[in-house]
Amino acid sequence: MQRRTFLKLLGTGLTGLSFLPGPAGAKLLQSPVATNRLRPPGAVPEEIFAARCIRCGRCVEVCPYRSIIMLDIRAGIHAGTPLVEVEKIPCYLCMKCVEVCPTGSLERIQQQDTRMGLAVINRFHCVAWLGTILCRTCYDKCPYAEKAIRLDQLRPVIDASACTGCGICTSACPVAAGDDRKAINIEPLYARQKVSG
């Protein structure tokens, strides 16, 4: 085989690897961010997060609650990036990670400006909304109670203007809705924003 042919094959193969049909290819490129799977506070939109993050793991190392985990090679191109699995260990908004990020993938923001996502109550699962039990765990646990979660006729209601998406409510919620879901889940709305300019 000629060198040129070999190099051509190698190049095509490597580039084509990411476009593999089926789940293998999709998984290599797919972002891990989903419901209850969030980036740490201050993260830039998912569109550029993978490009900006250098996978140095300093946010993982500094997190005192072990909320931030580091994805391994199974996450494809997103391997090594930080992720918070809020229904397991939520983010307690200590804001230590944003201060150590060397690339600005996590922007230095204030605690109340954090927008990891938005808490969304599933009214078909929430026992307070179903009316079976008088539960207000999420309201009690919310660090911004009365601002982010209010009680409306003893049923919790989210205010998007104050919810930081820290997921403390999700981890505290007693209702397991299966598939890592609870009756209150965090949707990564802000991670799906497009980058302006």
Binding site: I54, R55, C56, R58, E61, V100, P102, T103
Partner: peptide
């Protein structure tokens, strides 16, 4: 001291 030789603080 924080991190390793990707980013060392």
């Amino acid at each position: 001291i924080q991190g390793w030789y990707q980013s060392f603080g």
